[in-house]
């Protein structure tokens, strides 16, 4: 685990190649039947950067990710992917952008009628007909090996544990080699060793493929390792945003409590 942390530290120094943000949400409002969930949130991530989103249960972290990939429509505000506002875009146009995004659902959302391997192959079979069947198979194997699930190819999602489903979900999210990674609690429900492996994988992807990632997590330890910046949400707003050290130096009560209790 120390290695992962070292990598993160080293990586943080070399990263700053800047450029326009890959994902930028601005002044985002979203409510459900009178319940205000997001109240003017603004956040952004650049290439090769990981933003960890923290916050208490029910603050709208999952809703934020769902908005970014267009599964929910915001009441107002803009969501820019590579500078292009996706709010109000037709489904087919959004589709083009979604191919560049990998999404891990909070509860994995694996297709329960398909095997583990078929789940990971699913995006490839729909979008990468240009590569041969055997090559697709190889890629599925490699992806499953990366998340430590190489032994469970033919199993059905209902026959593997929640943590294993999460890892398969991550492999599926990576199948199309996305530029943007949106992960909803990737290490929740995982043992410490698997968590550390997933953290290492996220760091490796960030380093090798310069992905822009937004990772929702309750795991401060993991957030500290993988993220360049952290954002703490509360009551539909960003309470604080910055490096881990910035959070440590903050006087805000909620931030202090968050750090103390984690």
């Amino acid at each position: 685990m120390a290695t992962a942390y070292d990598i993160a530290m080293k990586h943080g120094d070399t990263e700053k190649d800047g450029g326009a943000p890959v994902v930028a949400v601005e002044n985002l409002h979203k409510s459900f039947e009178g319940l205000k969930v997001l109240n003017g949130i603004s956040l952004s991530v650049s290439r090769g950067e990981t933003l960890a989103v923290l916050g208490r249960s029910g603050t709208g972290k999952s809703v934020l990710l769902r908005l970014i990939i267009g599964l929910e429509k915001p009441d107002s505000g803009s969501i820019r992917i590579h500078g292009r506002n996706i709010v109000g875009l037709a489904l087919d146009r959004v589709g083009e952008i979604r191919k560049k995004m990998g999404f891990l659902f909070q509860h994995a959302a694996l297709y329960d009628s398909l095997t583990v391997a078929e789940n990971v192959a699913f995006p490839l079979e729909h979008h990468r007909r240009d590569i041969s069947r055997s090559e697709r198979g190889d890629r599925v194997k490699r992806l499953l090996a990366e998340v430590g699930m190489e032994g469970d190819f033919g199993k059905m999602p209902s026959d593997i544990s929640g943590g294993m489903q999460k890892r398969v979900g991550l492999a599926r999210a990576l199948a199309l080699e996305p530029e943007i990674l949106l992960l909803d609690e990737p290490t929740a429900g995982l043992d410490p060793i698997s968590s550390a492996e997933i953290d290492d994988l996220i760091l490796k992807l960030q380093r090798e493929r310069q992905m822009a990632s937004i990772v929702v997590t309750h795991d401060l330890h993991s957030a500290r390792i993988i993220a360049n910046r952290l954002a703490l949400l509360d009551q539909g707003n960003v309470v604080i945003e910055g490096a881990f050290e910035d959070l440590q130096q903050s006087d805000i009560v909620l931030v202090k409590e968050f750090l103390k209790l984690s």
Partner: peptide, 18 residues
Amino acid sequence: ASMKVTEQIDAIEASAIN
């Protein structure tokens, strides 16, 4: 319905499939 409530339909959409 079961695909909908377990977010599998959302997952299909998130994979850029209609």
